[in-house]
Amino acid sequence: MATRIRPSTKRCAVIGGSGFLGRHLVERLVEKGFSVTVFDITQSYELPGVTFHQGDLCDKQALITALKDVSLVFHCASPAPASDDRALFQRVNIEGTHTVVEACQEVGVQKLVLTSSASVVFEGTDIKNGKEDLPYAKRPIDYYTETKIQQEKIVLEACSKKKGFFTVAIRPHGIFGPRDPQLVPILVDMARRGKMKFIIGDGSNLVDFTYVENVVHGHILAAEHLKQDSPLCGKAYHITNDEPILFWDFMSKVLVSLGYDAPRYHLPYMLVYGIALLLWLLTLLLGPLVTIKPIFTPMRVALAGTHHYYSCAQAKQDMGYQPLVGLQEAISRTVTSYMHLRKEA
């Protein structure tokens, strides 16, 4: 019988390493002395110490090749939440994650850290200082979230101390930072089209926005503390900036820093939500005949008009988590990286 080579503890893989969060994670791992393998459908950059494998997440043989001699895997791959491609969510978040778990187990990976989402417990109503013991949403706010719930269950249920396969899920909320392809570009685009004049509700709702470096820090801490006798095994942890901010204050800070007007006019929350719900029903009914893409969906209205912020107490206790970059500094760094989107430009 062939002797099994123990994977190097300084070799790791980042699945989805070409994406926004994935690339920031890869760069930090390299700084910490890791040899990193990236597995993704595309390659968007080159970096010394990083090996790229392009492939389909559902191709187990391709994954097995990429994960050879790797002891630690970060699974960050997921379509953007704004996508409306249900088949893609199903394929990547559910089928792909099943394949990742199977490939990890077959090649002897010891640790799997999943990028989940705090939205797995959010149903469109207020969450204040939410803890990890909240139940999964019975009515997820969108299909993306529905598949993220299934994804998290797949990974956490695979944890087996007996087999030496340890898993943990990180639940960030409202990730932003330099190179973010979603939040700031979409915000600026809406401002340029005159769609950011209104505040939904009374503007008093607190939310979490989390700087990408802090999300990366949470992932690496989880990997470092994930071991046989660790409380992390098979658990999920909220990772945020730990500084809830008024949703519309955050939007205003970003917009004003880039030369755009802050939202000023208030619209009743229930009125906007009702209109969004009606438009959503129309898209379902008329979908086979005409393409309708409403700006305000029930999900977006709920995210803009309710409280949703989460406690990091468990992450602080079990892995010593503290945000590395405060919220104001994070906003400043992010805005500076988007000067090409200033109003004058």
Rank of each mutant, 00 (worst) to 15 (best):
L271W: 12
G218S: 07
K111D: 08
L267R: 07
C12H: 03
D59T: 07
K138Y: 00
P268K: 07
L303I: 12
Q328V: 01
T336G: 03
A304Q: 10
Y144L: 08
L88C: 06
L47D: 04
E102K: 13
T3Y: 09
N93I: 03
A158N: 06
F209N: 10
S35H: 10
V70P: 06
P294C: 01
E213F: 01
I175M: 13
E152Q: 14
F247H: 14
V188G: 05
H24R: 13
C159N: 15
V325A: 07
K227D: 11
V256H: 05
L67D: 09
P7D: 11
G130F: 00
D318S: 09
Y338F: 15
R264Q: 14
E95M: 08
K343I: 05
L114R: 01
M319V: 06
D318F: 10
V215D: 11
H75L: 07
D126H: 14
D180F: 05
D249E: 15
L72E: 10
C104A: 04
S83D: 14
L156A: 10
A2W: 10
E95I: 04
M190L: 12
H53F: 15
M299T: 15
A80P: 03
C58W: 00
F198L: 11
R11D: 13
S311W: 10
L25T: 09
V254W: 03
Q317Y: 06
A2N: 09
M299L: 12
I149D: 09
L21N: 00
